[in-house]
Design a binder for these strands. Structure first.
Lengths: 221, 221
DNA sequence: CAGTGTGAAGTTGTTCACAGCA
DNA sequence: TGCTGTGAACAACTTCACACTG
């Protein structure tokens, strides 16, 4: 069924990653507008709400496939559907989380991932005190016991919230499980075969920017 | 005292933000090497460990002010000190956190911020059940009661971990407190006078990238 | 005219190419 | 030869300029 005429039902244009990263902000803004019963919104308005450049918003909207009316803007509901579709929030993905510490627990308890299409179905830890408990209804299993078993389920996302020392070995394990994407919160860079999607989320990077800028203030005067 | 001859004691070259964001990764790598008693490390080695381009590492190292020996590399300990100094990890900054929910608690309990120069000294919430409690030794106060009082202390960083609806008003409040930097975890963009350092940390942006790429895999075949 | 849409210009960051060095 | 260091080429993103539209 590999037809040559895959003339892209939606365009196979590579969307710049920064645009993808902005999509959730648009979505959240649009949801508020929708709640206020606003039906049309213009790019300059969105830009003002999010501190962005109007043209940038126009281009980002184009990536979602919707087109707007001159002088009026875009249909709010249409944009919401288009962005959710663009991000794949409708497809449901299940996730395993390894490392049920503070951050791991926070992520599990975090509402909102579910409506973004990701459901954390199980957590793993090596700490016997945590094993057997539940966090917001998500069971915590013994990592050692489920090392191999976990691979039989078909889970697409692996979340790593372990200390940095174990992060890479957990990643390797996840690759063995047949996971498609790894979301890593440990402050190291995860290496994986290139067909695996790896997203490192380094909270320290953000702090570094703050600390560095705070330092500059002192130097200025 | 605005002398024209501010010939920069260290160079007032504007360091690219991506470079600043990479610094914590370097630091963490260097700490591991230091623990393994490695004294010299080359840029290509660091690059390999962190999946980066060697030249990029060389340029980043230059921003810290250290210079390396050809054929040998850089002195690990020297780099650690230089990066910590560059990021201002030695200067101590105190932080207030507003919104003692799951994420807020996780951040408070997160060790490591302290050695990055940031100490969360108090949390605030409107939930009476949380008020009066302590999270890892950090007291949770009633936001309403401390609205004005908080300004009298001299805190440089404000962390927002409230729901998105209240984020902007908390930011405004923090500006009134005389805070210099705002680290926002709510999924909205915070607006503040431009002398205030604002760092939005949108966890959803990372998820969006993953979801979008997962969607592309399905489309490919 | 206040918006959309888009090609061109500008800016920023990354990668390449190579000189210098031990 | 394997590294540092740097200027130049390149790529990616953003911003500008302007034609088009209701």
């Amino acid at each position: 069924m590999e037809s040559i005429l895959q003339i892209a039902p939606k365009m196979i244009q590579p969307v710049p990653e920064p645009s993808v990263r902005r999509m959730p902000s648009y979505l959240s803004t649009l949801h508020s507008l929708s709640k206020e019963s606003v039906t049309y919104v213009s790019a300059p308005t969105i830009a003002r709400l999010l501190n962005l450049d109007p043209t940038q918003v126009v281009k980002d909207m184009a990536y979602t496939g919707v087109s707007g009316k001159p002088r009026v803007g875009y249909l709010v509901e249409e944009l919401i559907i288009a962005i959710e579709d663009f991000l794949g929030y409708n497809r449901k993905h299940e996730a395993f989380l390894v490392g049920a510490g503070f951050l791991g627990s926070a992520l599990i308890q975090y509402q909102g991932f579910r409506e973004a299409g990701m459901r954390i179905v199980a957590a793993f830890d090596i700490d016997k005190k945590k094993v057997g408990t539940e966090i917001s209804g998500v069971p915590v299993f013994d990592l050692e016991k489920f090392r191999d078993l976990a691979g039989r389920l078909h889970i697409s996302i692996g979340i790593i919230t372990t200390p940095s020392g174990s992060a890479q070995s957990i990643a390797d394990l996840m690759v063995g499980w047949g996971i498609k994407a790894i979301w890593n919160f440990a402050p190291v860079s995860i290496k994986a075969p290139k067909h695996i999607i790896v997203q490192d989320t380094h909270i320290y990077s953000n702090l570094a920017v703050i600390m560095n800028k705070l330092g500059q203030i002192r130097n200025e005067k």
